[in-house]
Write a protein that binds this DNA or RNA. Structure first.
Lengths: 113, 113
DNA sequence: CCATTTTATCGTAATATTGCAATATTACAT
DNA sequence: ATGTAATATTGCAATATTACGATAAAATGG
């Protein structure tokens, strides 16, 4: 039904999934990378850098903002977006733990592929 | 239009996004964690552990398989799924690089939030 | 072969996502 | 106030996702 049964899962699993979902689009990956590279935040440069229409970029920014990965502030005539360092670190910790956890256990799986 | 313009982005961005998208559902996070914990791979135990119907679990497994994160083999009456260690390590590297990259640069953003 | 068990696939309904044109909003300058 | 530049919002169309019941397929045990 297009709706996830989040109540079945732990907070941690839901959080990892929500944040992964926010990164789960190449435009948003590109936006995050640009936000980290360009000095002094970014506004509409993203529209020029990425080849998508302005409303589409704005929408992707809203997704990232809702996920808490970025923050926006009004700065003159244009908005100013930055990666939220606190939230980013939190996400980084969650994800790295998860990545490590799913790797550490040795698999006794001897099935032939 | 519900379809991503992947041609606008680099292979690396598309790959990060594709793999993040695969992890972007709590059921799949839970499945990956279970696959890493349970000895000797897993099959239909996932249906019991997670509260979703069997076809739904099977569908999530297909998503993870398509993303290359897990592999499946027939083992007797039931299938046997494992995390693909090579692909997992590759994904882990990509993701950790991305996480680190977006964090390292100091932001001169002085906007007040 | 037939029944059983296990998993995959099909079909379908509900909802979400992606993308853009058109339009509204916001902040600043004049 | 009026105009301009930059973003956000709205509305919409196309497609994707999520979930499950029903059914098919595959392997084993009898």
């Amino acid at each position: 039904m297009g709706i996830s049964k989040t109540e079945l899962f732990s907070d941690q699993h839901n959080e990892i999934a929500a944040l992964a979902k926010a990164i789960g689009h190449p435009a948003r990956v590109a936006i995050l990378e640009l936000l980290s590279e360009i000095e002094g935040c970014v506004c509409g440069d993203l529209v020029d850098e990425i080849g998508l229409a302005q409303p589409t970029i704005s929408q992707h920014l809203a997704v990232l903002k809702q996920a808490g990965l970025i923050r926006g502030a009004i700065k003159g005539a244009n908005r100013c977006y930055c990666i939220d360092p606190i939230r980013w670190e939190q996400w980084q910790g969650l994800m790295m733990d998860f990545l490590a956890q799913c790797k550490t256990i040795e698999h006794p799986c001897k099935a032939d592929y």
